[in-house]
Design a protein around this nucleic acid. Structure first.
Lengths: 123, 123
DNA sequence: CCCTCTGTTATACTTGATATAACACAGAAT
DNA sequence: ATTCTGTGTTATATCAAGTATAACAGAGGG
C-alpha cells in the first residue's frame, strides 16, 4: 500500500486518494477482485478521517472502478464503458494539451510523454 | 468572446473560466498582447459575479498566461517556462492515462486523440 | 451472547467558492 | 479644477463543500 497524500496541495484529499488508487490499478498494484483496505484501516494509516476515505471509495464506485459490499468492503471491479472513457479522456486531454501548447510544448513532445507514461504503467 | 459556463458542473466557475480562456489562447482566439474583457464586462456577459472573474484572472496571472494592469486590465502575456510546462503535463497526463487504461483504452487510441485535439487547435 | 469487524448515518466544524458593497486610482470629458 | 466613468482592489457576508467526531446498524467469529 503506497499512498502518499500532500496536505499542502490544493487538491482535496479524497481526490488525491481516488487518483492514487486509480493509478494503483493501472500499474497492477491492485487487481480485479482484490480487496482494498477498510475505510478505517486506510484512514489510520494515512492519518486522516474515515469519512474522507469513504467518500473516495464512493466516488470510485460511482465511476465504475470498485464495488462496495457492506461486509467485505471495497473490491476492485472495473465497469468497462469504453465509449464514456474515450469521451472523458478527450475532454481532459483538451485542457491539458491547451495548457501545454500555450507554453510551447510540441505535439511530438506530448506523444513522447504518452509513451513514457504508458511505459511506466505497463512495466 | 465565446465562453460557456455549465452551472450544473461540479467544476468551480473560476476553474471553468481559466480553462476556457487557456483553450481560447491555444486556438488563437486570443493572441499575445491582446486585452481580455474587464472583470465587470465578462461577469455581466456571463451572469456571474465580478469577483469570480477576478479570481480566474489572478490565477491566470499566477500561472503565467496574462499580466494584470490596474488601468488596462488583463492582457495575454505568456510566460514561457517549458520545463515547468512539461512537468505539469506529465503529472496531469499520468492521471488521465491511468483512468483511460483501466477502462481498456489502448495506447494507440490515446495517440489518435492527441492528434485529433492538436488538429482542432492548430486549425 | 459478546466482541470486533464492516460500511452508514447524523451532526458539527472549518475551509473554500461566490456575492454585495465600498474603495482607490487613472484617464476623459466638461 | 471637477466630475464622470472606467479599471482592479479590498472588506465583509453568505452559502456550499470538505473534513472531523460520534453514534449507529448489520454480519460474522469467538
Amino acid at each position: 500500500m503506497f499512498i502518499e497524500i500532500d496536505f499542502n496541495s490544493d487538491e482535496a484529499i479524497y481526490v488525491q486518494l481516488c487518483n492514487q488508487i486509480i493509478m494503483g490499478i493501472a500499474t497492477s498494484q491492485f487487481r480485479e477482485g482484490e480487496q482494498l483496505p477498510s475505510v478505517r484501516q486506510l484512514a489510520d494509516a494515512i492519518g486522516i478521517n474515515m469519512h474522507t476515505v469513504n467518500k473516495a471509495y464512493s466516488i470510485l464506485q460511482q465511476e465504475g472502478f470498485v464495488k462496495i459490499d457492506r461486509r467485505r468492503g471495497a473490491i476492485i471491479a472495473i465497469d468497462l464503458n469504453k465509449l464514456a472513457a474515450l469521451q472523458e479522456a478527450h475532454d481532459m486531454l483538451s485542457v491539458v494539451l491547451a495548457r501545454a501548447m500555450c507554453k510551447g510544448v510540441s505535439r511530438t513532445e506530448i506523444h513522447e510523454l504518452i509513451d513514457e507514461i504508458y511505459g511506466e504503467y505497463e512495466a
